[in-house]
Each structure stands twice: as structure tokens, then as C-alpha cells.
Amino acid sequence: MKNDLTGKLAIVSGSTAGIGLAIATGLATAGAEVVVNGRTEERVQKAIEIIREAVPTAILSGVASDMSTAEGAARLVAAAPEADILVNSVGAALFKSFEDLTDEDWLFIYQLNVMSGVRLTKHYLPEMVKRGWGRVVFISSESALNPPKEMVDYGMTKAAQLAVSRGVAELAAKSGVTVNSVLPGPTRSEGFGSVLEGIAQQTGQTIEAVEKGFLEQNRPTSLLGRFSTTEEIANMVVYVCSQQASATNGTALRVDGGVVRSIA
């Protein structure tokens, strides 16, 4: 099966590193024109260089904007007013205990992880519906289904994304536009990787040992038994964005390594 997205314009928020960068690279490999987004021009240009090295024929542009604010979202849509594919990938975890989270922390992570996707989807969805084709993907997490005690705020935002995604899919029903969520499990991304590296340095362990310990203590139900790669997450997203996935709509697709113990 070949996922051919030639002629499609894709916007991937938060695509200068980690899962977002892998998704942008995957979409470019499938032939889509890709708009890269990150907080700074330096990071955006670096990401474009990385993607172009992997896909020399890629058609790329970039928009530097802070997606945790309405102004940042407005800057992105002003620079790229239309899209065939929207991947709401931007997100973060604060890695604070529940007791240490301030009101400002809760509001910040909600603005970044949830409202960024709400704002972008609100802008791009109507034109997709008018054209009769489009793909909207929210990058949620298995933490939406298994809220983690060590990241209560993060789990809350990821559950909210599922509600937004399904609700928007209902709004776009029978239009040719699909709206889905993808739920990664523990993934060796830049953000999580830096946390693991910090633990490894503090404890004198290898990264592999820290990952194993995290899975044993926090995700013991993992069937994969290791962290996923960002490319493995991106593979699912590229498929969901393809024509072949036209009947996959309004659903939450787990790429969690079997962490969630459920058959549905």
C-alpha cells in the first residue's frame, strides 16, 4: 500500500522535534507539501533542514509561532490560510507532581495542548468541508485513557483532545473530511528523552535502564516492552491522512505498545 499525498498541503503544529518532526517528515515522504511550525525561527529552519536531508524533493515552508496563545495560532493561519491536512501535534508535559501544579500551570498546559488544536481546527475545517476532502488528526496519548498519577494535568488535556476530536468528527459527518485521534504510548521523543537523560545522569544509569525502569514502574502493561520510536507513531498518522483511510473517522487509534488493557 502506497500512501500518496501528492498535491496535498499539510500543516503540522509543533513539528520542530519529536513526534511532530517525524510526522512532518513522513507526510513529506508521502508527497505532501508541509508547513513546519515551532516557537522560534531557528528551530523551524533547523527542522526544515532535517526534513530536506531525509526527503530532498520535499516542498517545505515554516511558521514560527507560540501555539499556547491565540496570537500564535492567528500568526500561523495568517501565513498558511488553507490546508488539506491538519495535524494538531504541539504539546508538552510539565512533569510536576499534582501538589506542585499551580493554577498557571494548569491554564498553560490546557492552552497549549487543547486550545491550540481547537483554534486551528476551527479555522481550517470549514474550507475542508466545502472542498469535500480533508484530514484532521489530534495527537493525544494513552494517558487520556489511563490518567497517570505522575502527570495528572497532562492526562486531563489528552482526554479533552479525544472529546474535541470526536465532537468535531460529528460536525463534519458525511463531508469527506475525517477527524481522528492518535494515541502514542511511551515514546523516545525529544521532550521525554531529555527527562530520561536527566534521570540517567543523576542515577548513573544508562538510558536503556531508565526506560526499562519507567515501563516496569509506570507502564507495566506494555506488550511492546520498550519505548516506541517517533517514526512508529508517524507511520500511523501518515496512514490516517491518506486516501486509504477514508473510512477511518471519529475514532481514537492507539499506537501505545499495548499499554491500554482493552480490546475496544
Rank of each mutant, 00 (worst) to 15 (best):
T251V: 03
G18A: 00
S140C: 11
I48A: 09
F227R: 12
A83N: 10
G191A: 13
R43W: 05
S141M: 03
L120M: 14
F108V: 00
V34H: 12
I51S: 04
E104G: 04
A200N: 01
R261K: 14
V259M: 04
V238N: 08
A78D: 14
K174R: 15
R226K: 15
A28V: 00
N88Q: 05
T221N: 15
L223W: 07
K8Q: 14
G193T: 09
S175R: 03
A93Y: 02
V87L: 11
L196W: 13
V210I: 14
L21H: 08
T230H: 03
S141D: 04
F192G: 03
F95N: 10
E42N: 09
G213I: 00
R254P: 03
P184H: 12
A17I: 00
T221S: 15
D256M: 06
D4G: 00
H123E: 12
V136E: 10
L171E: 12
G31L: 06
A22N: 04
N3E: 11
S228I: 01
V136L: 11
K158C: 05
I50Q: 14
L162C: 09
E142L: 13
V255C: 11
F98E: 07
L94T: 08
V118E: 00
K212V: 00
T6L: 08
A169N: 07
D103K: 13
T157V: 04
M156W: 12
T178Q: 08
A54F: 05
I11G: 00
R188M: 15
P147R: 05
T178G: 10
K96F: 09
D103R: 14
L171P: 00
M67A: 10
L21P: 05
